[in-house]
Write a protein that binds this DNA or RNA. Structure first.
Length: 420
DNA sequence: TCTGGGGTCCTAGGACCC
DNA sequence: TCTGGGGTCCTAGGACCC
């Protein structure tokens, strides 16, 4: 059997761990730039605040209704996630950490045994970290996901739902009451196309002809059909040694319109992403950069892309920053760009085979990257940078985070204080 | 004024090979 | 009119996830 353990309203729950005043109050967490709502506590959901609503639209109502808003504090969430995942891992020989707030584990046992273990996991994670979790158990990942929805919907289950505890009739009724787009792997576009074939519920999809589904859609949806029937098609994945790509992208707090400013943006973003690259011990072979106007503008929409193959794979910030700045000629002067990003692909672990010295880039071997990382770690992210990245103050286009909580688990000077 | 960010997998189609 | 067949690799774009 497979269990999905997922954290309830994870970001909002993290905010509560070190600020118990938030208990029982509606809490929303905002995306970068304090843009829109990306997480809500149960109380906020009860107010029918739509997920994804822009903060500037919600602000007035939120303040009147006593909603507490927080900027997203990924350093805190990442740190608490690591603790939660470690505890969950103690309960299984095989664990897949699927996302910051979800983990699949493999389990053996009777319905009663597994349900009991589910409750134990819940209790221990709550006791040790303050984060409430739900446990959904089924024969496949897709069914475990469905069970997790059940645990959320039916409070009488106490946070643990094992699909094996239902009769076939009851399971049919549950699936018939589940919209097909609420399934894992089925979103809006596929949902629309399925509706055209009179497939509206999870039960409809389970009972559809897999071959037809594969022909009309893809092998991905065919797998969903089989998984709904209890046939595992998606194995628990082992942790990967490294990623296929790394991205650093941000929206600006105000539009960037000049090539000079955009060069600064790209230089800094490239340095940010190169630092992640070094953390993972990888080198990159291809640098891509893009810039675009907002989704919501009606006039003057524009986007620019460029992709550069590097002569030698590298993790050095100077090379990568120069490559990213090759986007500059594609930038239309006077366009109101609202976001940009730098993407590294062609990633390999750094250890294997060093390039012939003839082709070594100018700065290779001088350990510029390592040196910057060391200084940054000691003195903070803006202490040093290459070229346009070495800024005393934050650039004017830098993102907004006006309601940021403390990073209580990763910075000594932000540690939680208790007062009598 | 103000609408997130970081990933994965799959497929189709082009380039290229013999 | 009519222009091989079979294979691999790579990339761009679509769809989805949290």
């Amino acid at each position: 059997m497979i269990a999905l353990v997922d954290c309830e309203s994870f970001y909002a729950s993290c905010e509560r761990v070190f600020d118990p005043r938030l208990d029982g109050r509606p809490v929303v967490v905002l995306s970068n730039n304090d843009g829109c709502v990306v997480a809500m506590s149960r109380e906020a959901k009860a107010l029918d605040i739509p997920m994804g609503v822009p903060w500037f639209q919600l602000k007035g109502y939120a303040q009147a209704a006593g909603v507490v808003a927080r900027s997203s504090n990924y350093e805190l969430y990442g740190s608490l996630s690591t603790r939660v995942m470690e505890i969950i891992g103690r309960y299984a020989a095989w664990q897949e950490v699927y996302s910051i707030d979800e983990s699949f584990i493999g389990m053996h046992g009777t319905v009663d045994e597994l349900t009991r273990i589910g409750h134990q996991i819940r209790a221990e994670v709550l006791q040790s970290t303050g984060i409430p979790v739900r446990v959904g158990i089924g024969r496949t990942k897709t069914l475990a996901k469905l069970a997790s929805r059940g645990a959320k919907a039916d409070l009488s289950l106490g946070g643990v739902c094992h699909l094996g505890s239902y009769s076939p009739d009851r399971l049919d009724r549950i699936m018939a009451g589940t919209d097909v787009t609420d399934l894992w792997g089925v979103a809006g576009r596929t949902g629309k196309k399925l509706a055209g074939m009179s497939i509206h519920t999870a039960k409809d999809l389970r009972d559809a002809d897999p071959k037809q589904i594969r022909k009309r859609f893809s092998v991905v949806l065919e797998r969903t059909v089989m998984e709904l029937r209890g046939l595992p098609c998606l194995p628990l994945e082992a942790p990967r040694p490294y990623k296929d790509q790394l991205i650093f992208s941000r929206s600006f707090s105000r539009p960037v319109e000049t090539a000079a400013e955009m060069r600064q943006v790209l230089s800094i973003y490239a340095q940010k992403v190169s630092s992640r690259l070094r953390t993972q011990g990888q080198v990159a072979g291809v640098v891509s950069a893009w810039a675009m106007t907002g989704h919501y503008v009606t006039e003057g929409r524009h986007s620019a892309h460029v992709s550069v193959g590097l002569p030698t794979e590298t993790d050095e910030p100077i090379m990568l920053s120069k490559a990213a700045q090759m986007l500059a000629p594609r930038i239309l002067h006077g366009t109101r760009y609202t976001r940009a990003g730098v993407v590294l692909t062609g990633l390999r672990p750094k250890t294997s085979a060093s390039p012939l010295s003839l082709f070594e880039p100018e700065f290779e071997g001088r350990r510029i990257g390592e040196t910057l990382d060391g200084i940054t770690q000691k003195l903070g992210p803006r202490a040093i940078g290459v070229g346009l990245g070495g800024m005393r103050g934050a650039p004017v286009w830098n993102m907004r985070r006006e309601m940021l909580s403390k990073r209580a688990t990763t910075h000594w000077d932000e540690i939680c204080e208790a007062t009598a």
